[in-house]
Design a protein around this nucleic acid. Sequence first.
DNA 1: ATGTCGTAACGTTTACGA
Length: 260
Amino acid sequence: MKIATFNINGIKARLGALTDWLEEARPDVVVLQEIKSVDEGFPREPIEDLGYTVETHGQKGFNGVAILSRLPLEDVRRGLPGDDSDEQARWIEALVVGDQTAVRVCGLYLPNGNPAPGPKYDYKLAWMERLRDRARDLLAEEEPAIMAGDYNVIPQPEDCADPKAWADDALFLPETRAAFQRIVNLGFTDALRATTAAPETYTFWDYQRGAWERNNGIRIDHLLLTPQAADRLNGCTIDSAVRGREKPSDHVPVWIELDA
DNA sequence: ATGTCGTAACGTTTACGA
């Protein structure tokens, strides 16, 4: 089972880039972030025509997540539990029924948090606390599950080309990294780090200052696996070349292959 | 060089979020 995460930075501007990539990569499941669309405005048909079921959790203008799947979906849930007053669309999950086993796939768009300190950073840290609660519940199920998406967290200095430039940024502050590590430490496997020692494995390059051409990137799109999913992990790939195409997102797809 | 995008809106341009 091939499962991908892709922050597309606006579905209306990225539909062609997305369908091109779906046709060539043929992932079984994709979690999307920053669809920047309400559910009714999401262009379902061109994606359904490629064989995908489309489940969205959108809002006007910003944020928004989705799951695309060629395999049957059950138990689709929208919104991260823990705060009924939170109206930002940043979480969607579903049970994907594979040939060998079912896998719970969670797609997330963790708050950016800048500027820090401030209310946006407070919201980021509070959201990460709620994520930890959901993560703990997933582990308790003792089933294959993954939490994939744009975490807006640079876990370690080696996850960015220029650590000094990110020192005061909400994506790299010690408190951010500690909160991410606390989640991983519950018992999750970072799929990329578990399968490759390659340096300079970035997933995002800013549109500004020729970041892509200079490989001035950061690794912020992650797939975290429960032990039961990690036991089935066959590899993890960053489709970096997508960043060099026409009208690219500033993120690229990251995907794993599971025996499932 | 506060440098690029995508989206929304009292839209031919500005504000916001990233």
